[in-house]
């Protein structure tokens, strides 16, 4: 017996209305591939290029009441960003990371659209000028890429180094923002 879309949608709406959901998630299309996005009551908590296993990770961090529902606000802002009509994101964020990570991500959020910085300079901004490697680790584990723009952080010699979505995605985002000439 299959659940009709109406029955399914009514249940999901009732669950949300009653405040029974720890994390809601959705998958949205983008020019750089499908993006897994997730929010809590407090705000956006995850963007990932890889959907596999994300629900279980979120359940461990935020609670097992994980439900798929449309995340229209986040989707709209991402659509606008990819269309070149948005330079900064307005959705609130729910970051649950260690203090050092939080400090670095806070500085990262201030790196302007269309600009790049190095791991070393970000490290200096949080008062740890020798912690470029540690900053690299924070970028590597960034729970909300794109919105927290780790794609704008590059090596000291300007090389792209690495990116969760792949270097071609990092390049595409920087080209979109005009920080790199199209290759």
């Amino acid at each position: 017996m299959s659940i009709t879309p109406e029955l399914d949608a009514r249940f999901r709406a009732a669950a949300l209305a009653e405040g029974l959901v720890d994390v809601r998630y959705d998958v949205t299309e983008s020019p750089v591939g499908d993006l897994f996005i997730a929010s809590t009551e407090r705000g956006l908590c995850r963007i990932s290029y890889h959907a596999e296993g994300q629900d279980e990770q979120l359940a461990r961090i935020f609670g097992a009441r994980v439900l798929r529902v449309p995340l229209d606000d986040v989707r709209r802002e991402l659509d606008e960003y990819f269309a070149g009509r948005r330079r900064a994101f307005d959705v609130p964020l729910d970051l649950r990371v260690a203090p050092f990570h939080e400090a670095v991500l806070h500085e990262l959020a201030r790196v302007p659209y269309g600009r790049t910085e190095t791991y070393g300079s970000l490290a200096a901004k949080v008062g740890r000028p020798n912690a470029a490697r540690a900053v690299g680790t924070v970028m590597n584990r960034n729970p909300i890429p794109i919105v927290l723009p780790c794609h704008r952080i590059v090596g000291a010699n300007g090389s792209l180094t690495g990116y969760a979505g792949g270097l071609h995605v990092k390049r595409a985002l920087l080209e979109l923002e005009g920080a790199m000439l199209p290759s």
Partner: peptide, 10 residues
């Protein structure tokens, strides 16, 4: 056995 995310249970 971990409690699965509700979506999977559903």
């Amino acid at each position: 056995v971990a409690v699965p995310p509700f979506e999977r249970f559903y």
